[in-house]
Design a protein around this nucleic acid. Structure first.
Lengths: 190, 190
DNA sequence: CCTACCGATCGGTAGG
DNA sequence: CCTACCGATCGGTAGG
């Protein structure tokens, strides 16, 4: 991908994140780029192409991260903390893309939609395996792995709703807080 | 609201939940109702009216629920469990509306959007107060209340992504599992 | 990257 | 709830 295309993509994403993919027109994007709508088509095949690139760039990063975590000889708690940290980092370092990825992937169609769902399932299974590791090691409660993985991912993904790049919490601090919350729960040991 | 209007609203919601508000046309909705597009306008002022009714019917139910919980002399753990149970019940009993409410509220405009955000903030503060009660009672960890409330709400709201009315878990069981997870965390007491 | 343009579809109205 | 219709906007193409 050329530098120019990256630049155009990034600007397009900053427009799409505002109102969402379906409510944003090709003309909205072109205007932000100081371009004629038709000119966009020399960079992208069509409108969905922008969504496709955005969603799969994110999915690929997550795929890589979970692979990295599961290949390393950490114990379960370390693995889970690392997975959460990497996840938070990917989200916060690509905030526009992350918002589109989480909110608008349903607007993908046909094979793209199928492939996306497949990749997403693989990622969720990766998370489930970490929980399983913890159960095997005897440090996590016997719990519904699928349920736990979904609950963890939902709270992690939700940060795109309130994260501010210049806010008081950075990615590492958010990851730590989330990990503490998920691992130890709200209730005091008594 | 007449029975007929309720019926039309429910069917409209079942269409809107599929592709999302922005990607669904008035004609899509009319077709599912076996109506001409123009006929919809004798029931609703415009397309956004359907979204507005949907979002505020849900918001009102949540508002009522958190009020109910905070008015009752339970301890913090009981309050949190009840709040989560009521929240899960509202979501699962109005699944179509719930999906639209969570995913599409951003498509509201002007005063509707402002009012919605206000109501949502009030609800979040209600959750925060429950956490505060727990800290005051000495049973919850000293924690970032805002952070905890958002994390709890995100995991609860996420259930609309996978909840199936005829699945193996009913609303009460989901609420219990979520509450256990949130209160006790993933890690075993050692 | 632009000019010029297209057919399709959009949300919505008038009038019955 | 329908017929008939509207202006605006949509995503996208041809050709340079």
């Amino acid at each position: 991908m050329t530098e120019r295309k990256k630049q155009i993509l990034a600007l397009s994403q900053s427009v799409l994140k505002e109102k969402g993919y379906a409510a944003t027109s090709v003309r909205d994007i072109a205007k932000a780029l100081n371009m004629e709508p038709a000119s966009l088509y020399s960079h992208f095949k069509n409108k969905e192409d922008i969504l496709k690139i955005t969603c799969f760039e994110m999915a690929d990063q997550f795929e890589l991260a979970v692979k990295e975590v599961n290949d390393i000889y950490f114990n379960a708690e370390e693995k889970l903390r690392m997975a959460i940290r990497l996840h938070v980092e990917i989200l916060t370092e690509n905030l526009d893309s992350a918002i589109i990825f989480i909110r608008d992937w349903r607007n993908l169609t046909n094979e793209s939609l199928d492939l996306f769902i497949t990749k997403r399932n693989i990622y969720e299974v990766g998370f489930r395996e970490i929980v399983q590791t913890g159960i095997d090691e005897g440090v996590f409660n016997e719990t519904d792995k699928k349920f736990a993985a979904l609950t963890i991912l939902s709270s992690v993904n939700w940060i795109v709703e309130w994260y501010k790049p210049n806010g008081k919490l950075n990615a590492q601090e958010i990851a730590d807080k989330l990990s503490d919350f998920i691992l130890s729960g709200l209730k005091k040991d008594t």
